[in-house]
Write a protein that binds this DNA or RNA. Sequence first.
RNA 1: AGCGGGGUGGGGUAGUCAGGAAAACCCGUCGGGCCCAUAACCCGAAGAUCCAUGGUUCAAAUCCAUGCCCCGCUACCA
Length: 708
Amino acid sequence: MTDRIFIGVAWPYANGPMHLGTLAGCLLPADIFARYHRLRGNQVLMVSGSDEHGTPITIKAEKEGVSPQVIVDRYHKQHTESLKKLGIVFENFTRTSTDFHKKIAQDMFLRLYEKGYVYPKKMEIFYCLTCKRFLPDRYVVGKCPRCDGNARGDQCDYCGKTMGLDELVDPRCSTCGEPPEIREALHLFFKLSHFEKQLDEWLSDKEFWKPNVLNFSRNWIKEGLQDRAISRDLEWGISIPLQGFTHQCIYVWFEAVIGYFSASQEWAYLRGEPERWKEWWMDTATAKHYYFLAKDNIPFHSIIWPAILMGYGNLQLPYDIPANEYLTLSGEQFSKSKGFGIWLPDILQRFNPDAIRYYLSINMPEKHDTDWSWKDFIAKTNNELVNTYGNFVHRVLVFAHKNFGVIPPLGDLESGDTEILEEIYKTVDTVASSIHQCHFKQGIKECMRLAQAGNKYFNDNAPWKLITDKPKRCQTVLHICLKILKALAILTTPYMPHQASQVWKMLGHGDSIGNYDWDEATRDVKKLQLPEPVVLFKKIEESSVGEDIKKEIFPHLDLQLAEITQVKKHPRSDSLYVLSIKLKKEKRKIVAGIKKWYSPEELVGKKAVVLTNIVPAVIKGITSHGMLIAAQGNRICALFTGEGKPGDHIFIQTLARNPQSSLELKDFQKLKMTTDKEGYILYKKQRLQTKKGYIYTDKKIPEGSRVI
RNA sequence: AGCGGGGUGGGGUAGUCAGGAAAACCCGUCGGGCCCAUAACCCGAAGAUCCAUGGUUCAAAUCCAUGCCCCGCUACCA
């Protein structure tokens, strides 16, 4: 019997291009899952869309001097194109700015209001007189009353103190810099607290969830659910359909999740069967709802969205939320707002989408954060995808095409044959159950294992000898190899759909692999004419990511941002200082020869770049545990500084950090780093950075100055 | 600070929830085979006190406790 599978994918925000993390954590697992279920003959409804409302989009539009609509149109189009290239297939990928969504979001809002789950309450908010708008927390900056550090909104960046609006010292609007005033405003609150018990009960039988998702959600409830404001003073959003509130908008987190519901209805409407969505949302017996998202989004889907659905009544609740962890880049986190990451439109231009899908599948952040490293991407693509898998497909097809031209018949079986045949059947089952349980990494690994077993089988039987000695036997061996290929084509379809259909064609099928189901993987191979095979995947040249990675010593450096806490003169030298510096946790002493250029007053409190893993050196009697990095040119010396906290790592995007325990000075001196005309520090034409931004000199210095 | 994740051969990971025979996989190193294939494929070898200490057990990488060290979140970013 067929199941109905609803798949909701977290809505990518339309203020910039999508990055790899979204693909790895949300889109790809969802697509694998959906494709698998479609192959299984289940009815799949997979929806998502661009999340197009909210302040960040307004701000971006203002910066560019265009209307928000221009921004969201641009990125929605770009998102759609990226998805198409990647082969991520939705039943409906829509956007939150449609009238359709607006109407349904407002209906849902009203229904909750009518049932008493939404109620008005007064609250205090910052209002900027210059910008003429209310300011969300993150758009107010000021000083922390406790540590005097920079604080944003209701929390101090530095010491982490949370505070009320009135506690923030010297608050400023982050856009115009003017002090805002506190205004009282009437807002609408969602009565989340009302659903506490109901949610707890609903979660009680979710033992099959990923432990982190379940524990996180249960803890949230245990700590007590607070009612949340769901109205905002914005012009860019869905207006609240209530008298007295029409100047306000529905808060985006509230409105965006409703998109799952509206996108389903829109899908039904667009295909001319406007009632079909009910099969997924109201037929609670057969429909299962899955949501694919990243860990930061868990409570919205495991608490708030279910509460909305409960409040609305009679709608299907999530069945599973197999949330993923994060994908990091060279060990640092992706960030859309900081512009740090790998963007889908960019990487799709450079690499085969199936290669990207492969690497992200085998390296998926299912249980913990995983790292996208360019080096590893190249290694896995070349060694596993190209060599093991691609070459197996190729050698079999080339051999069969050259010697037979058709798929040869199966003769008498030997023991090795039955073994490999069983291996096929076993793999088909394990891949199925892996995907079924959302263990995507395991599934693709099983596919690779079968390809490897195929290689072994091919080698052991040496058909290139059999072709002259025992042609009949050779036919059987090749028949079995082609059977493996057929199974692999089906099994890898969810992971790498493009190559799968290519293999399918090369096996002599005149029709699309899309016409077949999962069980086709084990059905007999027919005598089909084989076309001329072509290569599936080409190796990635190391130069295509721009670096000679192997001899690279840059990754061995452990460069960190350090705060200088104390400056003393070196007792035995006129040019040296002894600096106390603070890293993430530890404190160190380092000796630096910058007395000529900096006074102690200038240095204390400064953030500077320090090489922390250099072998400690005794300099005129004092041991220096690290080395201050500076640029020198034309008799000027400058230190480097940048955004971030003490201990933050400094790196470049294309090389993963891999610090050695101790680095010789001469190794460091081999590296050529220079400054550019804007004062950024370059290594191999790339700027060094923290995750918060680039590293730069603290004073003007000639372009091309050596870094020492 | 609070919350979450992690520490497994030289590098990268799996295994840990439901404790049990030789700790699995990819890369790298060394040796061998093969030569159909994208200089690819196959076999073998070296290499791990599975972070530390203590505990539970006939049996611990796996369970419990404590400690050390990394990383992330606590931003309307997946």
